[in-house]
Design a protein around this nucleic acid. Structure first.
Lengths: 134, 134
DNA sequence: CTGTGTGTACTAGGTGAACTGGTACACTAG
DNA sequence: CTAGTGTACCAGTTCACCTAGTACACACAG
């Protein structure tokens, strides 16, 4: 089985294990992976991506910490059903801080607030369309 | 002279030179620093932040590369007047990719598209207000 | 029971970015 | 000239990331 929903770039400055984390999260958000779906084993995915199984394991641990997947020793890893996020307020705050960074960046690109909101809505709409066509 | 507009955390996972970059960019976006203003010298700022002058120099070089500041050898560094950004399309694309990341993140926090847009507008409004009170 | 597949833990080592400390150079302004 | 500026080195440390290999505990099918 090939897992076309995951692509990583070994030469990227962002760590490979984090690319795996983001790839899985994006696949879930896009509906490519759904609650209960089984993920490839650490060794299988490591083989496919030609990386070390420890790197995949590190990604899975991070995903479990964020409640994206559920790990059952001896059986495998599965996409989690959607529970309450314990530290939701913390993560929303982090998201807002991230947004402030965009705003600052947009200022240096001479984008007005209106243009920035419009840009965001465009990206959101495009992403939605891409999700629906899957 | 103290530069209260800059705070860095040596224990943060984000590199100190990048914290300096973001700090200057945010100060400019907030209007704390204005075109033509002189930045402290690399050695002066390094002394104040108790870091090495090479680290500050690296931050200044990055800021110059992004056309946030202008460097004149022997005279100092100054906040740049606003020119055209040569690689604007590239940076807008990076900004859009960043937005996609947080759309994915919002999905895992069980935020709807409407809530996400509203959150973004709230952050934008709050930032605007904070800017005006300075 | 055994055998296979699962996640996990551990060690040892390689690589590169970040940072320090120090020195030196070219430039500008007084 | 001297003093202050950005810049360019170099040597060395630290640390996260990654690899490679091995081993362990668990679940399940046979």
């Amino acid at each position: 089985m090939l897992h076309v929903w995951l692509h990583i770039d070994p030469r990227s400055s962002v760590p490979m294990y984090q690319q795996v984390v983001e790839g899985v999260k994006e696949a879930v958000a896009r509906g490519v992976l759904n609650p209960g779906d089984k993920l490839p084993s650490v060794r299988e995915l490591a083989m496919e991506l030609t990386i070390n199984h420890n790197t995949v394991a590190k990604a899975y641990q991070e995903l479990e910490r964020e409640h994206v997947i559920e790990v059952i020793r001896g059986r495998g890893t599965f996409i989690a059903t959607e529970p309450d996020i314990p530290d939701l307020s913390v993560r929303v705050r982090e998201l807002k801080e991230e947004m402030v960074r965009w705003i600052v960046e947009a200022h240096h690109l001479h984008l007005s607030d209106e243009e920035l909101v419009e840009l965001f809505q465009t990206v959101l709409r495009e992403w939605r369309e891409g999700r629906e066509t899957l």
